[in-house]
Design a protein around this nucleic acid. Sequence first.
DNA 1: GATTATTTTTGAAACGATTCAATTCCCTCT
DNA 2: AGAGGGAATTGAATCGTTTCAAAAATAATC
Lengths: 323, 323
Amino acid sequence: MLTTLKDVAKLANVGVSTASYALNGNKLIKESTRKKVLQAANELGYHPNGNAKNLKRSKNEMIGLFISGFTGPFFNQLLEGIQDVVVSHGYELVVCASNERHRMLTERLVDGAIILNYHIESELLKTVASEKMPLIVLDRDIEHPHIYTALLPNEKGINQALKHLEDKGHKEIGFIAGSTDSYDGEARLNAFKTYIKNHNLTTGLNKILRADFTEDSGYDTMRAFLNNSHHYPTAFVAANDEMAMGAIRAIEEKGLSVPADIAVVGFDDIIIAQYFQPSITTVRVHKKQWGESVAEAMLDILTGSDTKHLMKPPMEFIERDST
Amino acid sequence: MLTTLKDVAKLANVGVSTASYALNGNKLIKESTRKKVLQAANELGYHPNGNAKNLKRSKNEMIGLFISGFTGPFFNQLLEGIQDVVVSHGYELVVCASNERHRMLTERLVDGAIILNYHIESELLKTVASEKMPLIVLDRDIEHPHIYTALLPNEKGINQALKHLEDKGHKEIGFIAGSTDSYDGEARLNAFKTYIKNHNLTTGLNKILRADFTEDSGYDTMRAFLNNSHHYPTAFVAANDEMAMGAIRAIEEKGLSVPADIAVVGFDDIIIAQYFQPSITTVRVHKKQWGESVAEAMLDILTGSDTKHLMKPPMEFIERDST
DNA sequence: GATTATTTTTGAAACGATTCAATTCCCTCT
DNA sequence: AGAGGGAATTGAATCGTTTCAAAAATAATC
C-alpha cells in the first residue's frame, strides 16, 4: 500500500491533523514538530493523494485546455501563451485532446476550462459550466452566465485580405472554405460573402470551394476545380494557410503561375507560410498573445476580479509572394 | 452547491447506492428504476465528482504525458501517436508542461506517466514510481523496478549521417551540439565522437560547437565560429534540424554555399526541413510511431500483460539538398 | 499555587463517490 | 398460509485528505 498521511503521522509520533498542518506550513505548529513531520514524510517518500486533497478542498488549482487534437501547427503557440500565464500564477495547466468522453472536464478535475474543441457539444458545456468552474470558449458563441467567449476577429482579417486583393486590381475572387463544423472557418466564409456583396465583386457559389483545412484537401479541391472549369477567378482566399499551400501546389501543377495567374492568400500565418515557395501572403493571428489574454482572463475570473482581459487578439496582414 | 449523487437519489426516490449502481450500469438494478435514476440525473445535469470517484476506486483511467513545454515542432507528432493509442484503449490522456511542481504526477492524478521533461529530477521520479503508477521515461535512463525506458536510437542515426558524409568524401566534420541537459543531445554528441575516433576522421574539440537547440542559437554559434576561424570543416552534423537551419543561414550569410562549401545534416526531420532552402538532409525520427509504441507499452504495463512493446522506434536517413 | 491566557496538538466530521453485507421485496412452491 | 429463494434495494463503511472545535500543554498573571 502506498504511504499515506497517517503513516507519516505515526512515524513522526503526532496526530494526523498535526501532520497535515505541518506539511501545509500552518504557523500554529511548533517548528520542532514540523521538522519531525517533514523528516518522516521525506523518509517515507510521502506525496499527498491529490484526489483526496482536491475532494476535501473542493478545488484543484488546475486549469484545463481542451483541444481536438495535436495535429496542425496552429496550437503550439497558443499553448505557449496559455502555459506561461497559467504557471506564473501558481496554477497548473493540463491539456486534453479527447473526442468522446471528456472526463477531465465533466468530472470537475479542473477549476476552469478553456475550450477549443468542436467535438464537445455546447449542450454539454452548459451543463458543466458553473460558478465553481467557469469556461472560456474559443470556437463558438454561447450564452451562459459562466461561459465566456474569446473569438478571433475573423471578419477583420478577411476584410483586410480582400481589401488587399482589390487594391491589386482583382475583380473576381474565390474562396476555399474549411469544414463546416469550424466556427472560425464559417465566420471567415461569411465575412467573405458579406464583403463580396457589399463591394460588388464578382463571384458565384461555384467559386466557393469546400475543403477541410488540410493541405491535401486544398490540393484536391483546387485541382478538381481547375479541371472542371475553363474560367477561373484571378485570386483566392483560403480559410487557412495549409489549404492555401495545397491550392498553390495544384495551381502550379496545372501550369499556371502564382501570383501571376492566380493570387492566393491564406490565414493564420503558420510558421511554414514564410518558407513555402512562393511564400504565402496571409493574415497573421497572434496566437501566443491570444493564449496569454485568454489565460489572464481565466485567472481573473477564478480569483474573483471580474475580467477586462477578454479583448480580441490583434491581427496583422502580411504581404508575401503569393499575391 | 453543485448537484451530487445524493441529490439524484433523492429526486429519483431511491437510495444513494441504488443511484450509483444504476448510473454505472450494474445489472442488478431493475430496468425501471434505472430509468428513473437516469432521468433524475439528467434533469439535474448531474456529473459525478471525479475526485471522489477516483479516490474511492483508487484509479483514474488517465495517463499523463509530461513535457517541458510546447515550443518546437517536435512534439505534435509524438503526441498524436500517443493520443491515438491511449484513447483507443478507453483511457484519457492529459498533457502537462510544468517546470516546478508537477502535481498531476506527484499527487497521483494519473495511473501512469510518460516523461519527456528534463526539468523533472530523476530522484523525484523514483519516489513517485510504484506498482500503482508506472513510468516510462523518454529522456533519460533510470534503474528502477517501475520505471521503463524508451530511448531513441541516437547512435544509429548519427552513424548513418556520418557514413553518408564519409561516402560523399568528407574527411573533416564538425558537430553542432545542443544544450547539455538533453539526454538525446548528449547521446548524439557522444555517438559523433565515437564514430570520428573509430574512423580516423579529423576533427578537434574546437569543431564541436555548443548551441541550445534553437534556430537562433545555431545561427549565432556558426556565425561566431566562421568569424573566428580561417579554416573550417567541409561538413557539419547538427543535433537537431532547427540548429542546422540556423547554421545554414549563418554560412550563407558569410558568402559560402551549402552544400558546396559546407554540407550540413540535421536530425529529427521536422516538417520545415523539407521546405527550407536548401532542403535539409536529416535523420528522420518516426515520432508518431514512437509515440504509439510508448503508449502501447504503457497500456500493456497497466493492464498487467507485461510488455514487449518497448522497441526503439525506427530511424531513417533522408538525403536532401543540404549535403 | 490557583486562575487565566496563549500555544500546540488532536479526534472526529466532513468531502462525494463506490461497494460490501444486510435487508426488504416479490414470487413460486409445498 | 408459511417457507424458501432469487432479485432488487439500501445503510454504512471506506478512500485520504482538510479543518473545525475542543482538549492538552505551556506560559503568564496576580
